[in-house]
Design a binder for these strands. Structure first.
Lengths: 344, 344
DNA sequence: TTGAAAGCGCTAACAA
DNA sequence: TTGTTAGCGCTTTCAA
C-alpha cells in the first residue's frame, strides 16, 4: 500500500494528522498543486488556490515540517542550548528567542546542559541533524567544538567571542565601569570581586572590566572565588570573606550578590551601611530582595531575539555571516544595596 | 543524482553531517546493515558490527532522527507547552522534564504560549506533526482542543483534569488545608484569598481547597481578584484591599504573595505583625524576600519528570493510558511571613 | 496553470 | 547474517 492509496492506517500505528495526500485527494488535484497553493500562492490559479485552502482548513491540515526537512534541510527548527534552564538569566533569553522564533515560523528545540559538558554535547549532537541553526546561550563547549558545529550548521554564540562564529555580547566592560564609577563616587577605594564559574568567559570579561576601571579610577580590586553562580555560592563567599570584610563587593551575578547579602545580614552585618553590594543582570529577585540590589541591567530578551535573527540571517545567506560580534549596551540600576563607606 | 551516488553536495546547500550512506559506503556494507548494527546489535555479526561502529565514529555519524520519523513516526521529540517560560514554576518543570527526556533519548521542543491562546495553539499545531508526544504544563486550551490533540498524539496534562487525558496534579487541596490549619492554629479566623488568572483551573482548585478547609475549621474565607499571577499583580491586590486589610492573606502563588507583601511594607504595614501572608509553590524568590515567605512546596521537578514518563508510557502502550490522574503530595513550608494576629 | 515522478535519510519487510 | 527495495510527507524538477 502506498501513501497515495491508503485510506486509513494499520493497527498499531498511532493516528496521524491529515497529510498532503489527503488534501490532494479531497480537493481532486495533485499534491504538487496543494504544495504550491499553500507555499507559493502566486503560482496557482486564484480559484484552485482558494478551493485547496478551504479543503485544507476543513481537514485541519498542517504541513509536516519533517517532510521538506528531509529533502531540503528545512525543518523549521532551531536549537537553543543553555547551561541551566532554571537560571533566570537564561529564562529571559529563552523568552526572547522563543518570540522571535515564533514570529519567523520556527520552532525551538531546547537543550539544557544541566551544567554538564557531557549532557550538552550529547544533546547537541542528537539535535543537530534535525535543526537548521544553533544558538549557544551559555555553553561549556571548547572553541574547537563550537567551530566544528559551526562548520555543520549556522551557529550563533552568546557572551563569548569565538573566531568566525557570530557572537552577541553584553557590554560587560561598560557595565563594570559604571559600577566602579558609582562606588568610587560614593567614596569606596577598595573593591572585592566575587567570581563566577572558573571556566566562564563571561566571568573573565567582567573581572577584567572591573580591574581596568578600578585602575583608571585609582581603586584597588581584589578577587575571591570561583563560586557557583547561585544564592548558595554567595553564602559561601560570605563565609570565605568573613575575616576581613571589604567596604564594597561586586558579584559576578545577582544570585551571588543576593546570597552574599543574605549571609551578611544573617550575621548582623548591615547592607549598605557596613558593606555595599552590587550584582549583575538585574533579574527579578534583585528587585524583591531587601535591600533592593544595585545591579547592571542587561537586555536579555533583546539578546535572545538578536540571536535568533542572527542565525536566521546566517541561514539565508551563509556568506554574509557577521564577523564582528554584536555588543549590546547595559545600564547601571542604582537601588538600595550601595551607599558611602562607614567613616573610619 | 541519487543519495547513494553523491559524493559531495551542490553549491547552495549547507554542508551536512555524514549520512548512513556515507557510513555504508566507507564500511563496504548495505545501509540496512549499518542501521541494524547501530540499533539492533544482536542481529549483526560481532565483527561487522564492531567495524561499522568504528567507521561511524570516525565519520562522526549520528542518525538523523527525521529519517525514521517520516517512516515510523519516531522522531525522538516531545513537545512541552508552557504558558510563560519566565515563570519560575515552569522553569522547574522544564528542568525536570528535560532531564527525564534526555535520559530516555528524547529531545524537547519548547512552546512558550507567552500567555496567549493564539500563540499556544499556533505553536502546538506546528510542532504536532514533528513530535511523538505532548506535555501540556500550563495551558489555556479548552478541554475540547486538548481532547483533539490527544486523539492525534499521546498527551499528558499538568494540573488539570481533562477526561481521558492522563493528568499529573499537585495536591492543592491538602496544601490549602495545611495553610488553613497553620493560620487557624495561630489564631486567625478570617482569611482572604488573592486569586490568580480567571480561566485557571489551578486557581479554581486552590480556592475550593481553601474554602473547604476554612469551613471545616470554622474560619471565614473571602476572595479577591482575579489578578495576573505576578509581583505586579500582588501590588494591585494590596491597593484593592487597602481600605479593609484582613489579618491573614493566602495568595494563589508566591509571586502574588510577594508583590502583596512588598506593597504593604511600602505603606508601612508590617508582615507578619499586622498581616500574615502565605504563598504557594515555594520558588526561589520566596526564600530571599524579607520576611521569608511561608508557602507550600510543590515537587515541580518531579512533576516534570513524571509527565515525561507518562507520555513515554502512553506512547509505548496506547491501551495502558492511565485514566486516573496522578496526584503529587505537597508540603507546607513555614517561614517568617506568618504569625499570630494582633490582639484587638 | 497543472500533473507526474523522483528523492531527501532512514528502517522494515522480504529475499537471498 | 546480509542485501535489496519500498516508502514515510513533502517539494522540486520536468513535462504537458
Amino acid at each position: 500500500m502506498t501513501a497515495r492509496e491508503r485510506g486509513s492506517r494499520g493497527a498499531g500505528v498511532p493516528s496521524r494528522s491529515a497529510t498532503i495526500y489527503d488534501v490532494a485527494k479531497a480537493a481532486g488535484v495533485a499534491t504538487s498543486t496543494v504544495s504550491r497553493a499553500l507555499t507559493r500562492p502566486g503560482r496557482v490559479s486564484a480559484h484552485t488556490a482558494a478551493h485547496i485552502r478551504r479543503v485544507a482548513a476543513e481537514l485541519g491540515y498542517h504541513a509536516n515540517p519533517l517532510g521538506p526537512g528531509l529533502r531540503t534541510g528545512r525543518t523549521s527548527m532551531l536549537a537553543l542550548v543553555v547551561s541551566d534552564v532554571t537560571n533566570p538569566v537564561y529564562t529571559e533569553i529563552i523568552a526572547g528567542a522563543q518570540s522571535a522564533a515564533t514570529e519567523a515560523g520556527y520552532i525551538l528545540v531546547l537543550i539544557d546542559a544541566q551544567e554538564s559538558d557531557r549532557y550538552e554535547l550529547g544533546g547537541l549532537e542528537r539535535a543537530l541533524p534535525a535543526v537548521e541553526g544553533v544558538i549557544l546561550a551559555g555553553t561549556r563547549l571548547s572553541d574547537a567544538a563550537i567551530g566544528e558545529a559551526a562548520g555543520n550548521r549556522p551557529v550563533v554564540v552568546l557572551n563569548r567571542d569565538v573566531a568566525d562564529v557570530p557572537g552577541i555580547l553584553l557590554d560587560s566592560e561598560h557595565g563594570m565601569r559604571a559600577i566602579v564609577e558609582h562606588l568610587s563616587t560614593l567614596g569606596h577605594r577598595t573593591l572585592t570581586y566575587i567570581g563566577g564559574p572558573q571556566a566562564s568567559r563571561v566571568d573573565g570579561a567582567r573581572w577584567r572590566g572591573l580591574l581596568d576601571a578600578a585602575r583608571d579610577l585609582g581603586c584597588t580590586a581584589r578577587r575571591s572565588g570561583p563560586y557557583t553562580p547561585t544564592v548558595r555560592g554567595g553564602q559561601q563567599a560570605a563565609e570565605a570573606l568573613w575575616g576581613a570584610l571589604p567596604t564594597a563587593v561586586v558579584a559576578y551575578n545577582d544570585q551571588l550578590a543576593i546570597g552574599f547579602m543574605l549571609a551578611l545580614q544573617h550575621r548582623g552585618v548591615r547592607v549598605p551601611e557596613h558593606v555595599s553590594v552590587v550584582g549583575f543582570d538585574n533579574v527579578l529577585p534583585a528587585q524583591i530582595v531587601t535591600p533592593a540590589l544595585t545591579t547592571v541591567g542587561a537586555p536579555l530578551r533583546t539578546q535572545g531575539r538578536a540571536a535568533v535573527n542572527a542565525v536566521l540571517t546566517a541561514m539565508k545567506n551563509p556568506a554574509a555571516v557577521l564577523r564582528r560580534p554584536i555588543t549590546l549596551p547595559v545600564k547601571l540600576v542604582i537601588r538600595d544595596s550601595t551607599g558611602p563607606p562607614r567613616p573610619g
